[in-house]
Amino acid sequence: MIRISDLSKTFTLHNQGRARIPVMAGASLQVAAGECVGLVGASGAGKSTLMRLIWGNYLADGGRIEVGDLDIVRAAPREIIALRRATLGYVSQFLRVVPRVPVLDVVAEPLRVLGRPAEEARAVAAGLLERLNLPSRLWSLSPTTFSGGEQQRVNIARGFAHPYPALLLDEPTASLDAANRAVVLEMIAEAKARGAAILGIFHDEGARAQVCDRLVDVTAFAPRGVA
């Protein structure tokens, strides 16, 4: 489902003496449907960079990133948008939403952009929020003022609202208590069972051991002479 080959990335800082910072070279990995692969490596080794390259958030310099039939490196913006809508889900560590929009609508939005009726989308959102133990009195509030753990659960609910065939998870259990952590791991296992290809970053070793089928050390993707 996800196939990466010979991927490279360099940041050029035009306003700081045109400094060139190579961060990745020759990266290759594959994630099959129903498989969960964990990225490991020291902080700053490029785990999040790789996730963002796959999401299309960073522009690759060379190589290929195929998700389904689409090569992200060469895709037009609208193709990436279509991919994000229907195929590729992303649970990031940060929640970025329109201020003042209630949680329920934030979680329902991925379904609304797929054309699902508002009531149906909200029902799915409510089910997810309930499962993630977010008190229903918070559902009509904007998540911008929520605690880290609450925002994280909103992000997770968004990422699992639609059964994406491919999922990127960036520290999905980082700020959760044991009960909610268990729920999230259960949701990941269910996604795997329905055939989702999952690529994740888990600092939580227990979680990693429980859901990952194998690990890839991104240190191997560091450009020579830098790492």
């Binding site: 035009h14 306003n15 958030n57 960073y58 522009l59 913006p77 609208r78 990436i80 948008i81």
Partner: peptide, 30 residues
Amino acid sequence: DRLMVMKSGRVVEQGLTDQVLDDPQHGYTQ
């Protein structure tokens, strides 16, 4: 969905909105 960055009457960069904002390629966008 998409972003076009203009400077002095010319388009200096265009692409997916979050990509242009998070990984700008042109000095002006940066």
